[in-house]
Design a protein around this nucleic acid. Sequence first.
DNA 1: GTCTATAATTTGATAGAC
DNA 2: GTCTATCAAATTATAGAC
Lengths: 190, 190
Amino acid sequence: MRYKAGYKEEKRREILKTSGELAKKQGFNNTGVDGFMHAANMTSGAFYSHFSSKNDLFKALIESEIGASIQQWEMNPHQDPESWLDFEMNRYLSLLHVQHPEKGCVLPSLAAEVSRADADIKQCFEKELQRGYKLFAQHAPEPDFAWAILCQMVGSVLLARGVQDERLKKDIINSSLAMLKTLLKNGIAK
Amino acid sequence: MRYKAGYKEEKRREILKTSGELAKKQGFNNTGVDGFMHAANMTSGAFYSHFSSKNDLFKALIESEIGASIQQWEMNPHQDPESWLDFEMNRYLSLLHVQHPEKGCVLPSLAAEVSRADADIKQCFEKELQRGYKLFAQHAPEPDFAWAILCQMVGSVLLARGVQDERLKKDIINSSLAMLKTLLKNGIAK
DNA sequence: GTCTATAATTTGATAGAC
DNA sequence: GTCTATCAAATTATAGAC
């Protein structure tokens, strides 16, 4: 055997990482197998020894990318729910996140493509998204609004990325930040 | 002249309408010129007598689609801000909207593709989006949160479309509806 | 104004050498 | 496991007939 054990797994993770960045930046469907492999310093022929099809890569990408977001959320240093959420909101609703899709959350970038993908991929997306939701429901001060808060963050980054003016990008994310903070400060008296 | 005056403009609007539905349903980049023209009962050769390029169609599509959403918002029958917003939230955050992207708002469907498009298209998107924002800022009870409310609605439909389970789709949009209504009921005491 | 035909690329995927 | 070479299909766009 000319390659070490574990080499293939390592290479696969490498492809997933560079492909994830590329897909978030320029879209999954807009990027060819050639493009993904080029980003991993390989040629397209080698692709199919790691994935059975381009669709297979998409599924693996959704899984690993949402997994990466969840890992970040799990490393949130704060204990009390208020501070925990405040930390995540500020990280997510930032100009840095808006301007660097390749390093950010997969949801604003690829959720629309997931909604058009086959049942297998949507299933995978749903499973991983539920994991993320549970983390928010456990740590956020108001579990009933965990989905709403996630939606708010995702939608804000999505729209802010679509506009050109930097001032407007800031206005959009700051409006969302202000609304979420107002909601939480008021104690969410239903 | 074998064709009536105004025939071309009419045909162009027809192409925009069917192309808009198709693009919202299956993505703009995923659809070929052939596909768009087939939906309008024409062949791809005729496309270029209406648009200079596929990119030109995208720009026209963004303009007409956001314009169509704004028209809907302008036809909201309610006068007082509270009822006006309540009406729009219920329309937007509905299972019907989640399940029929081809008939719905363009933002959850195509905003990610806009964020990857050229400056010309983003400019057009920004201009139209600002018009929509102003309508919300004028009619919604809290202008400072107009962007936040738009982001909330867009993000909710986006994520709800990505998951498979209908119960979960409902949970997502209902969480957002509940959060927005709580916020407004509490008088938005900042 | 729309058609058919076609040019030039790009795409997802396979085969075989090393 | 990765490479080069290659294929069949699909893509954007143009040309010329009606």
